[in-house]
Write a protein that binds this DNA or RNA. Structure first.
Lengths: 205, 205
DNA sequence: CCGGGCATGTGACAAACGTCACAGACCGGG
DNA sequence: CCCGGTCTGTGACGTTTGTCACATGCCCGG
């Protein structure tokens, strides 16, 4: 549990207070050493190259580059570090995207505090650590929206009218209404507001 | 910095991982001792009575009883503990409600990690600790909504139709439309969706 | 008791929304 | 080449939304 056997960890988290607190939590473990901290994905990418951590712990929602994009980038660079996502959001869509980015762990912020260290050890040894409440329902539904529907729905969720959306996407208003109608149908909603809410909650944005 | 001079702290935070991490962070300080932890406002209230902490650090958004309601309750019981709010949300409405509940500190989760301990010491000594980015803009706008408008707008933001809202609140549909129209006007929005978005973002729910 | 707020309801109207059937354009595979 | 998708647009239709003027009832202070 010492010397060369220490697990080197990089933490990425945009809320500094949480970042510091997580670091303090992990530093209490004998076999874990926090070798670097980053407040966004870009910094994390650079620091990962410099400090070659064994495991990266990252949030998802960060300004600039999200944790998911960061994991994707690490994978493309064939960096050997294992990635663990720690997030507030139990959204199946997030987990799916995370897994296809090669992420090895996905924990929720309301998991017990000791699970983080456990997950790090497990992942370091080649295992996986997925939050149990998500492991099962991850595959309950695929994102049924296509790109246009997603774009239109996102803008509708901001409060734009069909006409506004049409102008922004260079479509006719009728077409926008058609896409919205499609999306509402696919999501089982009864209007654009509910549809946007559902899509957001599932992580389909 | 030891013995009777240690500051006794209670932490309330619904995300266990963050709760544990914050506790670890504070336990590193010689003059601070975490005497209790709670994952919601109700537990916090009971533990505050049992352990008589000097300072309570609490999140706002927790299931059941929010941090703001908790602060209010502590004040009504005339409990001597000072309250520090730690939250993600820089919403003027929240800060205002917090201050009128007698809260002594209001920090954002993206503040530097060492500020929490600093804030605790400051508040313990009778001072205040308000996140600087909020201190100024706290008074830029008052919540213009009345209770009915708030209720109606909240439901509208969920995607309910005017008719649904009317049934739920035992109002006529026309009245619901009137309240919505009022709210939309007051908030400078152009439809219910935008109005809900604005109100949510300002912390007026 | 009166007057003025406030909460609630009504009716009417234009605008926006949601649905549907359908049509042209394009693109790829057989 | 034609056939089948997918994307986009149109027109029509009934429904919901947003706005406004106005009515009713209720309570509180003078």
């Amino acid at each position: 549990m010492k010397g060369a056997n220490v697990i080197k960890v990089l933490i990425a988290e945009d809320q500094s207070l949480i970042l510091g607190a997580l670091a303090a939590l992990l530093d209490m473990e004998d076999d874990i050493e926090v070798v670097a901290r980053a407040v966004n994905g870009k910094d994390a990418l650079k620091l990962a190259a410099d400090t070659s951590p064994d495991v990266v712990v990252t949030d998802i929602e960060m300004p600039g580059m999200t944790g998911l994009e960061f994991a994707q980038a690490l994978k493309e660079k064939q960096h050997p570090a294992k990635v663990i996502i720690v997030t507030t959001f139990a959204r199946p869509g997030y987990l799916r995207r995370a897994l296809s980015a090669g992420v090895k762990g996905y924990l929720l912020k309301d998991a017990p505090a000791n699970q983080l260290a456990e997950a790090i050890r497990k992942v370091k040894d080649g295992g996986k650590a997925i939050a149990p409440e998500l492991a099962t329902e991850a595959w309950d539904a695929d994102d049924p929206l296509n790109d246009r529907e997603r774009q239109v729905l996102r803008l509708a969720g901001e409060g734009l009218t069909s006409g506004d959306i049409a102008k922004q996407l260079f479509l006719s208003e009728g077409t926008v209404r058609n896409y919205l109608s499609e999306a509402i149908g696919k999501l089982g909603a009864s209007n654009r507001i509910e549809a946007a809410r559902i899509a957001r909650q599932k992580g389909w944005l």
